[in-house]
């Protein structure tokens, strides 16, 4: 029952780049990203679709890459933590996490940031409570969330400011 079915051809935009890929149908998106593309910033912290460490964006919305087949991303755009900012130029949300000490061991951090960016981009104006509820799909064991909430609120402001700046240019 586990004989390898033939691989499927996939066309996925990964972090802005057009990728032509092949994977068997039973490949989870998170495994395609981690094993085939070497994008190991997306982590696996559970097997029940609860912890959110594998959160990526699919067409701009946060989804759990452990509950999505790679083939379901065919024809769509996937953004991972590696695609939102770099060491040279952190995304405002990444910068806010650093500034607020919103990470310790770092394992949940990529998923947390991907969830936070979606929350800011698609959520209502955020309050402390709204951020806490909006992060319901992400578990952190280190920080007690205090600084994460602070960072998301700060990141929200920074993202708005960055948008304004861009709008002005």
């Amino acid at each position: 029952m586990d004989e390898e079915r033939s691989s499927m051809k996939l066309h996925i935009t990964v972090n802005g780049a057009d990728r032509r890929l092949e994977a068997p149908p039973n490949t989870l998106l998170v495994d395609l990203l981690r094993r085939q593309l070497g994008l190991t910033g997306t982590h696996v912290g559970c097997d029940t679709c609860q912890c959110g460490a594998c959160t990526v964006h699919l067409d701009g919305r946060a989804v759990k890459a452990c509950a999505l087949l790679a083939v379901q991303a065919d024809g769509h755009a996937v953004t991972t933590i590696e695609g939102v900012g770099s060491a040279q130029q952190l995304h405002p949300m990444q910068e806010a996490f650093r500034d607020c000490h919103a990470l310790q061991c770092g394992f949940c951090t990529p998923g947390m940031i991907m969830a936070a960016i979606d929350l800011v981009e698609h959520g209502v104006p955020l309050s402390n409570r709204a951020v806490r509820e909006g992060l319901e799909g992400n578990i952190c064991r280190c920080t007690g969330y205090h600084n994460i909430v602070k960072a998301v609120l700060q990141g929200q402001k920074a993202m708005a400011a960055a948008d304004d700046k861009q709008g002005a240019v």
């Binding site: 959110g52 946060a62 989804v63 759990k64 969830a115 979606d118 929350l119 319901e136 992400n138």
Partner: peptide
Amino acid sequence: IGDPQVRNR
């Protein structure tokens, strides 16, 4: 339902 990521799928 569930959490934001689950609701997105």
